Amino acid sequence: MIRPLFILLASLLQHYGSEAESSHVGKFHLPSVKEQNGVQESHQEKVITVSGDGMVQSPDFPHTYPRNTAVVWRLVAPSNMRIQLTFDERFGLEDPEDGICKYDFVELEDVEDVAVVGRWCGSQSVPAGHTSTGSQVRIRFVSDEYFPSEPGFRVRYSLLPASPSEPEAPAGLPASLPGIEELSEAVAGLSTMEEVMKYLEPERWQLDMEELYKPTWHVLGKSFLHNKKARGADLNLLREEVQLYSCTPRNFSVSLREELRRTDAIFWPGCLLVKRCGGNCACCSHRCYDCQCVPTRVTKKYHEVLLLKHRSGGRGLQKSMTDVPLEHHEECSCVCKDDWD
């Protein structure tokens, strides 16, 4: 396979290469918070106030984009407007692997639905246009350290008035919404996806299953990497056993509705496992009275789940597969409470 060979060659080049090359491959950093021409930049994302037509694009478009890059734009329009997105015909990122965009990709998220609309890469076809369901959308561009491509992408955005028949979207439906809590409790007690679909639509559950997994015009990809440590000498093994009960990332179950603060939707499964810091700090190296376990490296991972929502106007349930972002702690450390505060 060409990618592993390229990785080996790239490693050799990185070892013997010039300082100029290594500086070119350096990680892209967003500047500290500032605002200019309606664009507010922070370490997390660039917030763009949409008042007319504009565009966002991969760095150096239409030429080869840099490696090791992560850029996020959040487009914010007035509450009574929607954002229309159109991709430039010139589109090309690193090709997918096994049909999944794992390495370089551009991703579109509808902020109101907390749902990934699509993730795209390669150069076979230009992504279709999209109109936001609310007044905000998020565009995310990621490239790894291999195979930068060209021309990258460009997305043009413009404003559209919300449909007159479209109900004003509430910030969050109350938890007492009739049917939501009862339905959530019933769905939580089911063991398989088939049982969920049979419970919701006894007459057409098989058709619904086919619709959920039918290939669509976008490709969603998830990649979860887990590094495994090799067993060392007995002393290393003893230390690793202690670490199991010390301050380390470990599995915790979280409720999606509570984690995402969504009272207007039901997720199945309703709980997922995440890595969060836990354990004690009995072996804390700091000389302080109160040593606490805190995360020192946090990442966001996407998990595909079934989303159930009431359609507007009481027209039944909307069922869809969606990606939900959850925070994972990858590294933890014991620190003095006074220092952390």
Rank of each mutant, 00 (worst) to 15 (best):
residue 180 I to G: 02
residue 300 K to D: 02
residue 178 P to D: 06
residue 182 E to Y: 07
residue 285 S to F: 01
residue 225 L to N: 09
residue 182 E to N: 03
residue 340 W to G: 02
residue 76 V to T: 15
residue 316 G to P: 11
residue 163 S to G: 10
residue 45 E to W: 05
residue 189 G to H: 13
residue 96 P to K: 01
residue 121 C to K: 09
residue 133 T to E: 12
residue 35 E to I: 13
residue 157 Y to E: 01
residue 316 G to H: 08
residue 72 V to E: 04
residue 80 N to W: 12
residue 78 P to I: 04
residue 188 A to H: 05
residue 266 I to H: 02
residue 137 V to Y: 10
residue 190 L to W: 12
residue 296 T to V: 14
residue 293 C to M: 12
residue 313 G to Q: 03
residue 249 P to C: 08
residue 32 S to A: 08
residue 251 N to P: 08
residue 327 E to G: 10
residue 335 V to M: 08
residue 275 K to H: 06
residue 228 K to V: 15
residue 26 G to T: 12
residue 235 L to A: 08
residue 101 C to V: 01
residue 103 Y to H: 10
residue 20 A to W: 00
residue 16 Y to D: 03
residue 198 K to P: 01
residue 331 E to R: 01
residue 251 N to H: 11
residue 108 L to S: 06
residue 94 E to T: 11
residue 281 C to P: 00
residue 291 C to Y: 03
residue 215 P to C: 12
residue 46 K to M: 11
residue 169 A to W: 09
residue 303 H to S: 04
residue 288 C to M: 08
residue 108 L to A: 01
residue 332 C to E: 06
residue 265 A to D: 12
residue 236 N to I: 01
residue 315 R to P: 01
residue 301 K to W: 00
residue 108 L to W: 00
residue 119 R to E: 01
residue 52 G to N: 11
residue 140 R to H: 14
residue 162 A to V: 12
residue 126 V to A: 02
residue 251 N to C: 10
residue 231 R to H: 08
residue 31 P to D: 09
residue 310 H to S: 10
residue 311 R to H: 11
residue 164 P to R: 03
residue 275 K to A: 13
residue 234 D to C: 14
residue 338 D to M: 07
residue 191 S to C: 10
residue 157 Y to G: 07
residue 149 S to V: 01
residue 37 N to R: 12
residue 282 A to G: 08
residue 319 K to F: 00
residue 15 H to Y: 04
residue 38 G to A: 10
residue 105 F to R: 03
residue 211 E to T: 12
residue 281 C to A: 09
residue 280 N to E: 02
residue 42 S to E: 10
residue 264 D to L: 07
residue 185 E to K: 11
residue 113 D to H: 08
residue 192 T to Q: 05
residue 235 L to P: 00
residue 321 M to F: 12
residue 210 E to G: 09
residue 320 S to T: 15
residue 132 S to P: 13
